[in-house]
Simulated assay, not measured.
Amino acid sequence: MGKLMYGASLTPILIEDRALAHLKVVIVTKLRRQESFTLSWVHKDGEAPGRSTIWLHPSIPLRFVFEATEPPALNPAWINALSQTLSSTGGVSLVDEIIDPTRTG
């Protein structure tokens, strides 16, 4: 389970390593352009029911912590789907992975 450490909060946001790796690409791309936006997700089983949203800004410290030592292979379709959620006023939403049955590896 990966962790997203945001700002001065000592409470990590728990996100599966694979999802966090894909989110990282989208988030870093936006922040590199000095763009602010929101990130929303539905709480995992075992957490309080509901959903959360945080405001991401280039000046707020952000740290990605991965449980696995090796990065996963990235799925361009999933990165695109995550990026497409930015087109809405709701910012980035953690959507399920897009699986392409014709793609191998």
Rank of each mutant, 00 (worst) to 15 (best):
99 I>A: 06
94 L>N: 05
20 L>D: 02
62 L>M: 10
102 T>D: 11
7 G>D: 05
2 G>E: 05
42 V>H: 10
88 S>W: 06
74 L>M: 07
72 P>N: 00
2 G>M: 02
34 Q>E: 15
17 D>A: 00
51 R>L: 15
70 E>L: 08
77 A>Y: 15
80 N>Q: 15
27 I>D: 02
93 S>W: 08
86 L>F: 09
59 S>T: 12
96 D>Q: 07
100 D>L: 03
11 T>H: 11
34 Q>T: 07
88 S>C: 00
43 H>L: 01
84 Q>A: 12
69 T>N: 08
96 D>C: 03
62 L>N: 06
28 V>C: 13
72 P>A: 00
29 T>R: 09
104 T>K: 15
24 K>H: 14
55 W>A: 14
6 Y>D: 06
36 S>A: 14
39 L>K: 00
26 V>G: 04
20 L>G: 06
64 F>K: 00
86 L>M: 12
14 L>I: 15
103 R>W: 10
93 S>F: 08
83 S>W: 11
56 L>G: 03
24 K>T: 07
60 I>V: 14
101 P>H: 05
17 D>M: 01
8 A>Q: 08
30 K>C: 11
90 G>E: 11
8 A>P: 00
91 G>Q: 05
79 I>H: 05
60 I>D: 07
56 L>H: 06
28 V>E: 15
68 A>L: 06
88 S>K: 03
79 I>T: 05
24 K>C: 13
10 L>R: 15
31 L>T: 05
2 G>W: 00
44 K>G: 09
101 P>Q: 01
56 L>V: 04
82 L>T: 03
102 T>V: 11
82 L>W: 06
92 V>T: 04
76 P>A: 01
14 L>Q: 15
42 V>R: 13
75 N>M: 00
40 S>A: 14
88 S>D: 05
77 A>G: 11
49 P>N: 12
79 I>P: 02
75 N>V: 00
82 L>I: 09
90 G>L: 06
31 L>S: 04
62 L>I: 12
67 E>C: 08
74 L>I: 08
91 G>V: 01
93 S>I: 01
62 L>W: 10
69 T>L: 03
32 R>I: 12
92 V>L: 11
56 L>P: 01
63 R>D: 15
84 Q>G: 06
37 F>Y: 10
60 I>A: 07
63 R>S: 12
46 G>T: 08
81 A>W: 07
46 G>K: 14
45 D>A: 13
93 S>A: 04
29 T>C: 11
89 T>I: 06
60 I>W: 09
3 K>G: 03
81 A>I: 02
33 R>M: 11
25 V>P: 10
67 E>F: 10
91 G>C: 04
78 W>C: 01
27 I>E: 03
27 I>H: 01
33 R>K: 09
9 S>E: 09
5 M>R: 09
102 T>P: 01
74 L>N: 08
79 I>A: 04
54 I>N: 03
47 E>R: 13
88 S>V: 00
26 V>P: 02
82 L>D: 04
6 Y>F: 15
31 L>H: 04
69 T>D: 14
36 S>D: 14
12 P>F: 01
17 D>V: 01
92 V>E: 06
94 L>P: 02
100 D>T: 04
100 D>A: 03
4 L>A: 04
60 I>K: 00
29 T>A: 12
14 L>E: 13
12 P>A: 03
8 A>M: 04
3 K>Q: 13
51 R>C: 15
20 L>W: 04
30 K>A: 12
56 L>R: 01
85 T>C: 06
35 E>V: 11
59 S>G: 11
20 L>R: 03
77 A>F: 15
